[in-house]
Amino acid sequence: MIKLQNVNKVYRTKTIETTALSDINLNIDKGEFLSIMGPSGCGKSTLLNIIGLLDEPSGGEVNIGGNALPNYNTKAMAQFRNQQLGFIFQSFHLIPDLTVRDNVELPLLYRKVGGKDRKRMAEEALESVGLKNRVSHFPNQLSGGQKQRVAIARAIVGNPEIILADEPTGNLDSVMGNEVMDILLELNSKNDTTIVMVTHDENMAKKTHKLIRLYDGQQVA
């Protein structure tokens, strides 16, 4: 499903060259739940961004669903993200001026799904995370756990094959964190959705199928 071969990422300025990732090799099968751990600044989010086609590697090969990254132009990558990927961010990244439903509809908007279908699909996704009664609320009217559940609804509304979660429980207390983790595990087991999750939490990582550890941009386990 996801294959990374000798992936490097180097950030260059005029004076400094910083290696964020070095020779990462990774193979994630369909339906697998992988967690990535490591200290802050070790390259976890960079790796997730590369898998999510949000960033390009400096070297190596990224292959997602049989398509090698260099074959994509910017527009095609946007389309691929829209069709195949769902993102969950640590700080939720809900758009404050949109209602819960409008936020969840966002990926469908770029698929040019009609208004009625968008509404139905968004409400179904919100129902699956237990927030159907909050469709008309705005993000600032929700708790942290509820915001993250809305973010999960947004990630799954288009039935993507892969979900990329960047510390999804990082801003939540343990109860809410567990709730969010349970939703992700259910998604993975019920829908066979491939999930790649960056986390600092060992307990959360233990619940996933596979764990890799990064240290100074290198895969250490």
Binding site: G52, L54, T74, K75, A78, Q79, R81, N82, Q83, F87, F89, H93, I95, L106, P107, Y110, R111, R154
Partner: peptide, 16 residues
């Protein structure tokens, strides 16, 4: 800008 990032992550291209 963060909203733009989210929109791009979920499939909006530059023209959109």
């Amino acid at each position: 800008s963060s909203e733009i990032g989210v929109r791009k992550a979920f499939g909006a291209d530059r023209n959109t």
